[in-house]
């Protein structure tokens, strides 16, 4: 797939991004290989206007059914722990009550595309996971051991999501996720 470019008059983004979708087949065992097989690249974009054009054609997260995920990652980073951009990284996880996913996802994506996190190249991508009881937002960064960066990301996340103060946020390294096989 060729690298996307902003069209005439469009507003370029600091980074190009790719949108991925995955859905777990009911009853199938979770594993890294089935996760990889289920991951579908939907589109790439390079400008604000291209993002909105794609977004208007995507089903909103709250309207997805079953065990589904949207992933928006910088172009060239596959949304997998094993990718070289992710293998020393981790993610902030925010668990959402049902009904909040679409609004929170839009807030998170706009903050990421607009470079509101102010952590340079650290952000890898964002994921919204639709599950039965709750939905889960995650923001992945490159360096799990960099506590200054991860704290800054947490503070910005809290601000842009505008969630109740008692919302629980957890940081998890991809290494730990791999060990406990928890996050497919």
């Amino acid at each position: 797939r060729p690298t996307p470019k902003p069209g005439p008059g469009e507003h370029p983004l600091q980074f190009n991004y790719a949108v991925w979708f995955s859905r777990k087949a009911p009853g199938k065992q979770s594993s890294a290989s089935s996760y990889n097989q289920n991951l579908k690249l939907i589109t790439t974009f390079a400008s604000v206007e291209q993002w909105w054009n794609h977004y208007s054609h995507l089903v909103r997260p709250s309207d997805l059914t079953g065990h589904s995920d949207y992933h928006i990652f910088k172009e060239g980073i596959r949304p997998m722990w094993e990718d070289s951009a992710n293998n020393k990284g981790g993610k902030w996880i925010v668990r959402l009550k049902k009904g909040l996913a679409s609004r929170c996802w839009e807030n998170l994506v706009l903050a990421m595309l607009g470079e509101q996190f102010m952590v340079g190249e650290e952000i890898c991508g964002a994921v919204i996971s639709i599950r039965y009881q709750e939905d889960i937002l995650a923001l992945w960064n490159r360096t799990a051991s960099d506590s200054v960066t991860t704290s800054r990301i947490r503070d910005t996340l809290k601000r842009v999501l505008n969630l109740p103060p008692n919302t629980i946020m957890e940081y998890k390294t991809h290494n730990d996720s791999m060990k406990d096989n928890s996050s497919f």
Partner: peptide, 21 residues
């Protein structure tokens, strides 16, 4: 570091631009 920053309000304005189909 990053050079291209956009505020949320600006991104939302672009949603209604003629360039956004």
């Amino acid at each position: 570091g990053s050079k291209i920053f956009y505020e949320r309000s600006f991104l939302l304005q672009c949603r209604n631009s003629p360039l956004t189909k």
